[in-house]
Design a protein around this nucleic acid. Sequence first.
DNA 1: GTAAGGATTGGC
DNA 2: CCAATCCTTACT
Length: 176
Amino acid sequence: MRNLSITGNRINSAFFQEDVLDVAPKLIGKYLCRAFDDGSIIKKRITEIEIYRGEEDLACHASKGKTARNEIMYKNGGVLYIYLIYGMHWMLNFVTGDANNPQAILLRGIDGIVGPGRTAKKLKIDKSFNGEDLGKSKRIWIEKNDLKAEYTTDVRIGIDYAGDYWKNKAWRLVLK
DNA sequence: GTAAGGATTGGC
DNA sequence: CCAATCCTTACT
């Protein structure tokens, strides 16, 4: 059935409701699916992500506590956190962990596309996706599979303001 | 109210 | 190298 990929073969919210350090290695390499109004679907592997972990992480948007912008990160894992940066680029993040434990994984690349802004643009992401439930959404979800993905790690990009300790965390994962 | 700056990108 | 572009945040 054509509908199977939309309703049956997706990763559920529980997958995201663990510590972001455990979720990220399982997320890299998975197939991200995006269904458009015209019936077309983009299905590509997640190739690059970054970890943002809690209020103590000075690079995380939650480092100064809950605000109107970041409140989505305080929800249970499995929803999207979307925000605009530099007045022009939408960023897509997967919220992880339990409620009141703000964590997220920034999507930086999918097959053939490098860069968080470019990736979100390709997927036609905007503010309306903020809070989108990956367990239920008809327009975006992640496909199940048990393949182990190999990846390399490196420091996160664009967070020099976070101080030496946090800026040097190898919390960027790149699919081999 | 006001001002500073950003999890980036593309063009010169 | 640097401007674009506007939302969010932290102040006065």
